[in-house]
């Protein structure tokens, strides 16, 4: 494993499989236990450095670190020196002086974790940077797929929605390809980046054509403000062409699953009856997020000498 987890490409197939296997062992070791805590990272300090509000991701990382007995410091942009204009570099030097073993960073600027990794000695974990990547989300998604379908190799994954602005899509395309899955992207052409043709994924515009050949459908959040920038004409038209409703869900293969990284826009990209169906893994994804992040923290911080 590399010292930092900045993007999916930091993990080769063996590394990615090790993370997923470790997460599975951790989940199994903790299953049914009253004491859901391991002493592994006792004495290590993990800083959650969140420049963007994301309660669910922060809590997931916080729980993961605490279950491994790390000391956790939450450093959010609001109410700290960050909101007073302190630069990322100065913040990094502060964390360095405090002796952070790991920095979990969420930032609105693509590449901010890469910059941070130049300035701190500890391991940097990207918890979502701009429209770049969100590698632990991809790991938990891969974990969920493997848990439900028993494999990743050859699994047909269709990712639907705002690929252009999605760090989840970028990380999933990279990681799922590394793990042998076949990824198809479906979106209106305005929401696919120029250059998407160089990605290891098929690209299509017709959701109905792809669904019968999908073992996994991953719906991406579509933000309403994209409408105002003319990425698509209206929420209604988007929903009609690219939303997953009960009619579309019915044409999926029998054991196909429906995923969503959350938070969902019910009625926009996903209908309520789909989100709440037995095919939906949305709640499992949240639970699996903790195990997967524990695995990442253990593998990055567990053996690293300060």
């Amino acid at each position: 494993m590399k010292r930092h987890l900045l993007e999916a490409a930091d993990l080769d197939r063996d590394d990615a499989t090790l993370v997923l296997d470790t997460a599975a062992q951790i989940e199994q070791a903790l299953a049914g236990r009253e004491v859901k805590k391991l002493p592994t990272l006792r004495g290590r300090t993990v800083v959650n450095l969140f420049y963007e509000d994301s309660t669910r991701t922060r809590i997931s990382f916080e729980l993961a670190a605490k279950r491994l007995s790390a000391d956790v410091i939450n450093f959010s942009a609001k109410g700290s020196s960050v909101s007073k204009g302190e630069s990322l570099k100065d913040t990094a030097l502060t964390l360095e002086a405090m002796g952070a073993d790991g920095v979990v960073v969420r930032h609105s600027a693509s590449g901010a974790p890469h910059r941070l990794a130049n300035w701190v000695r500890g391991s940097v974990v990207n918890a979502g940077d701009g429209t770049h990547e969100h590698p632990t989300q991809a790991l938990l998604d891969a974990y969920t797929i493997r848990q439900r379908l028993g494999r990743l190799d050859g699994v047909r994954v269709t990712i639907v929605g705002d690929v252009l602005h999605s760090r989840v899509a970028r990380s999933n395309v990279g990681l799922l390809h590394t793990l042998g899955a076949e990824v198809t992207l479906v979106a209106p052409p305005t929401l696919l980046p120029v250059g998407v043709g160089s990605w290891p994924a098929e690209v299509g515009y017709d959701l109905d054509a792809v669904l019968p050949k999908s073992d996994v459908v991953m719906m991406l959040r579509v933000q309403a403000e994209r409408m105002n920038a003319s990425f698509f004409p209206s929420a209604r038209e988007y929903s009609r062409r690219y939303g997953l409703d009960a009619r579309r869900m019915a044409v999926l293969p029998d054991d196909a699953i429906v995923m969503h990284p959350g938070p969902m826009n019910r009625g926009m990209e996903i209908a309520a009856e789909v989100a709440d169906s037995v095919r939906s893994t949305i709640v499992e994804q949240v639970a699996n997020g903790v195990s997967t992040r524990m695995a990442v923290l253990y593998l990055l911080l567990g053996g690293s000498p300060q």
Partner: peptide
């Protein structure tokens, strides 16, 4: 996950409990 010498030995794959 209970070892006190992980730093020296480095991490390794876990086995079932």
């Amino acid at each position: 996950l209970y070892r006190d010498d992980l730093r020296r030995r480095g991490v390794r794959a876990l086995e079932p409990t």
